[in-house]
Amino acid sequence: MQPVWIEAVEPAVLKATGAPALDEVSGDRLRYWGSSEVWRLSYGLRSVIVKRGSDAQSTEGMAYEQYVRPLRLPAPELIELVRLDGAVLLVMEDVGWVTLEQEPSLDGFLAAIALLAEIRSVEVDGPSEFGAGRLAELAAEVSSGRQGWVEDSALGSSADLVERVETRLRPAVDELHRLVRPAVVHGDYVGKNLVTDGKRWTPVDWPLTYLAPQLPDLYTLTREAVALGHDRDGLVARYCEAAEADRDLVERQVLIGGCGFTLRALAWVIEEGVHTVPSSKTWIDPLLEELDGLLEQL
């Protein structure tokens, strides 16, 4: 079984797997999620990952060109890239069969923490792409409630959300930008996007990558780990040790990063998710409550 769009990357698939013809290649769909579809294509012992991304997921090719390749980030090798009908098709190295979501061990989370510290240590030459102005834009998008779903929320009225972002979050973000240089943010650093071959861990799915001093990646990873019963304190301490970073500053980066993550997630759900993933409408209230709690800590 294979999707018809695989034919657009047939030469790269055959070369990478060594298969004589596409009908000799076996296909296993790993993910089908609104704007993203991911397959493992195998021939004998050789396999590749093929992904079709649209909407927000269509930027992964640009992320590879702008960040992953020039900075030599620990990501799957990009073998082929084809842009087709408003979507991007990527043929990538197969870096493993098990994700941290499938086997959420403490050792796995600790390894992911160390890997994140490695990513954040890469020196970058460029300005932050997620400053206070961007956060204000997201707050405005969310508060407008284009589908009318966020008026009676944990954050009160739309005007309340914008005001709290302006009075609480903006000053904190501006101060952080004065203290810390921008570094790479994966943008979706969670268990389903961390893959192991039994020897090493590799982050996959890079379309949301940007530069910023915040630490939303550590926020999302520890958020998931705590939900599974792991101790947050030990995970953050491991990051501070691996990154040789001050704990108080890291906590500030994580808190501000969490605000940005929730705002970004809310904006995506309201503008795109409700159309591509209808069930995401149920995420709005929990995300608003989460954002409320984070803003209270600033």
Rank of each mutant, 00 (worst) to 15 (best):
D85I: 12
E77M: 05
P207R: 07
T222G: 13
I270R: 06
A8F: 08
G198F: 02
Q253P: 15
E103K: 15
T262I: 04
L30C: 12
A225V: 01
V142K: 07
Y67Q: 06
T202S: 08
L135R: 01
R252T: 15
S36W: 15
K51Y: 00
E166Y: 03
L221C: 09
S143I: 00
V50H: 00
V184F: 08
E24P: 05
V226R: 15
A19E: 06
S128Q: 12
S144Q: 14
L288E: 07
Y67I: 14
A227Q: 13
R146S: 05
D233L: 10
Y189T: 02
D248S: 15
E77H: 12
V48Y: 01
G148Y: 08
D205E: 04
L106H: 05
A117Y: 07
A21K: 15
S280R: 06
V38N: 04
E37P: 02
S158Y: 03
F261I: 04
A154D: 09
S42I: 00
L169S: 10
G293Q: 03
V91N: 01
S42R: 14
F130L: 11
G260W: 01
E137Q: 11
M92Y: 00
L295F: 11
Y189D: 02
D205H: 04
L73A: 06
L263S: 01
P104S: 01
V4S: 15
A212F: 09
G34T: 05
L73W: 09
E7W: 11
Q57T: 01
I79D: 07
P20N: 07
L169Y: 03
D205T: 07
D107I: 12
V254L: 08
M62G: 09
H275T: 12
A56S: 14
A159H: 06
A19S: 10
V162Q: 11
V180E: 02
E251K: 07
R252K: 11
L73F: 13
V150M: 10
L211W: 08
V50M: 09
S280K: 04
A159I: 05
R146W: 14
V274I: 10
D174N: 10
Q214Y: 07
R29C: 14
R264W: 13
I256P: 01
A12V: 06
W39L: 01
G34W: 14
E60S: 03
L110Q: 06
R232W: 04
D285N: 13
D285Q: 11
E37A: 05
P20H: 09
E166V: 09
A114H: 10
L116F: 03
R232G: 13
E296M: 09
L221F: 10
L194N: 03
Y64P: 00
A172Y: 03
R52I: 11
R134S: 11
E65H: 14
L287S: 15
G156W: 02
L81I: 14
E10H: 02
S36P: 03
Q253K: 15
T59V: 08
G187H: 03
F130A: 14
Y43L: 13
G257F: 10
C259N: 02
L45E: 13
K192D: 13
P127G: 12
E118T: 15
R31N: 08
L138P: 08
E123P: 03
D292H: 13
D246V: 12
H186N: 03
L110F: 11
R29K: 08
A242Q: 12
T282L: 06
V48I: 14
A139F: 04
